[in-house]
Write a protein that binds this DNA or RNA. Structure first.
Lengths: 109, 109
DNA sequence: GCCTACATATAGAGAGTCTACATATAGCGT
DNA sequence: ACGCTATATGTAGACTCTCTATATGTAGGC
């Protein structure tokens, strides 16, 4: 599963996996896979530009680190990012309620 | 509510409101508003191109009619459209399950 | 005559996701 | 030494859909 359905929901996903602890890009991809039960396979060409965008907006900050000889850029939620995450969550509820009520079969009634 | 979140879900919405009976474009917009409790306001610049695309793909057929002096183009689901609708519904279930499990807060656990 | 509701349609902008490619280190097996 | 896989970040360009704005026309109420 994937395609373009994620469009517009990537922000919420990224902010959500960063809620409890900072992570670097590669680890975010793995976290999304794990937490979705393998359903979400976000390509690097999607994630990295999204992270930069989120940082530019002010929802994330990043720091470089070297671990085991490999460079990592670790992303952390800002206060604005946490507020945005809360907003994304309620927007998600409204979104699924709206789509769900349209998608529910009505039968012949 | 609206924005770009609908991207990738318009097809399912349109096919779903056409499931029970054929409708013309304007009536589809109204049906989406009603069934979503006013949450979905699909602009004509979104709907009409989408209907043409769906017809081109083979999920819909259309017929012109004149009612009360006004011309209407009425869209009807094809057999392929009904199969697609079934697929869209199960895809929607998988989609919400995946996103939902990522968005669910984990606390300090 | 004017406004609103009904009804369809297109052009162009805009934005985000995807594919494909480029680069580099670490560790394993042979 | 060589190749492969996992780890790790990043960009360019194509793609596709949605949105805004605009255009056209009929019907009915005031």
């Amino acid at each position: 599963m994937n395609s373009d359905a994620l469009r517009g929901h990537m922000d919420a996903l990224i902010l959500s996996v960063l809620e409890d602890r900072p992570l670097h890009g590669y680890a975010i991809i793995e976290a999304l896979q794990e937490r979705s039960g393998g359903a979400l396979n976000v390509p690097t060409g999607t994630l990295y530009p999204a992270l930069r965008r989120l940082e530019r907006i002010g929802y994330l900050t990043s720091e470089w680190a070297t671990v085991g000889g490999r460079k990592r850029r670790t992303y952390r939620l800002t206060a604005a990012g946490r507020r945005q995450l809360a907003g994304e969550r309620s927007a998600w509820q409204a979104f699924t309620a709206a789509i769900g009520s349209v998608l529910t079969p009505r039968g012949a009634g």
